[in-house]
Design a protein around this nucleic acid. Structure first.
Lengths: 208, 208
DNA sequence: CGGGTCATCGTCCGAAAGGACGAACCACGG
DNA sequence: CCGTGGTTCGTCCTTTCGGACGATGACCCG
């Protein structure tokens, strides 16, 4: 019997997952969580085998699914975490994998793929949606144009229209550091300004 | 008895909606559709009272939920269409309302709100999520933040990462003119920098 | 014809961004 | 054990951007 915890801020999605997965004979849904903090708490208390984790949680909290994943994976005897999200941006994928996710699925995945991924995760295997797997392979093949996670973090804030000073404050670093990251980003993306970098990153699918 | 048709490309969401709405005594789900064309066909054939319509359909087809809504509303004795989507961008809302939607709900809406909206739609009333309603009112109050065609031209070049000097050369005008257009754009979009303006324009659906 | 919007071009000036150096710390792998 | 890459910080300097004034002519609409 595989014990599942479902963490998603959309009631509709939670209901759908419960209906889809609950009908499998060897699955048992032991809990649901509607935000990142509740997910961590529930994972600790209910001791599930696999956590289905959304990456985007509404404005309710500021903790993201990636944060929650990291915290869950640092519990003792942690459950496997299967990330389930809408988008396939490099930034999200990288953040999730680094946080210790066992798999990365898109919400438009067909049910059988979802079920298979849960079984794989419960067995300790990795389960990546085909789209995601090929994207990761692309990244392996062309390591030169890949940004570090910190650089992505900076670039996302740049794309949101924040100034260097604001970004520095958000990330708790000096403005010099932000400019340094940006210089590396410009070099990697072959851009000479922040807006050009954002444009290139969007075109290449690095940002969504 | 209210007959429902559910149109959404995500199996998880469809399952969730069926589970949530199917348990209401006076609701009956008469069909599901996984893309926009199938939704129109099903609406014509099954003659539901209310169609729950997603706005974003995956890359499968090119028809959007707004198109499908328009076509459904142009049937004879058309059902009411309740748009159900993830995003609350002004462009989406406006497109849906113009296409004849009776309501606009976000997928993170609580179930009771969803049920209430379906009943309201079936009764021929409008049902807007509070967030959406207030946004529409804001738009009414704040007279048209729409950009002139020249301003849009400039903004697109800005979004492509070009500098003021490059934009000026491209459009065969002086750099001063570009800066003047940008100042107007900043004012209309309530932004203080080019990247922030691009970000806002994207969020509002002004830029793709 | 007056009033509004749009597009075009100015100047002045402070703030922000970017380039060009350098340098320290740490983790990780060959 | 040493090199490589990532993250952090620094200074000096130039370029670009954005704000705050402005001005002109073209156009449409009531």
């Amino acid at each position: 019997m595989i014990h599942l915890l479902i963490a998603d801020d959309h009631p509709i999605v939670r209901t759908g997952l419960v209906a889809l997965l609950g009908s499998e004979d060897d699955f048992e849904i032991v809990g649901e969580a509607s935000d990142a903090d509740a997910a961590v708490e529930a994972a600790e208390r209910l001791n599930p085998d696999v956590v289905l984790m959304d990456l985007q949680f509404g404005a309710a909290g500021n903790a993201t699914g990636a944060h929650a994943t990291r915290r869950i994976r640092s519990l003792e005897a942690p459950p496997y975490v299967l990330v389930l999200t809408n988008y396939d941006s490099d930034a999200d994928i990288l953040a999730a994998v680094e946080a210790g996710a066992s798999g990365y699925l898109l919400k438009d995945a067909p049910p059988h793929e979802l079920v298979a991924a849960v079984r794989a995760a419960a067995a300790g295997e990795s389960a990546l949606a085909p789209v995601i797997a090929s994207r990761l392979l692309d990244r392996m093949r062309a390591p030169h144009a890949s940004l570090s996670s910190r650089e992505l973090e900076v670039l996302e804030l740049v794309a949101a229209g924040r100034s260097n000073a604001e970004i520095a404050a958000t990330l708790f670093v000096g403005e010099t550091t932000v400019k340094s990251h940006l210089a590396h980003i410009f070099s990697k993306l072959d851009a000479t300004s922040r807006t050009a970098a954002v444009s290139t990153a969007r075109r290449r699918g690095i940002l969504r």
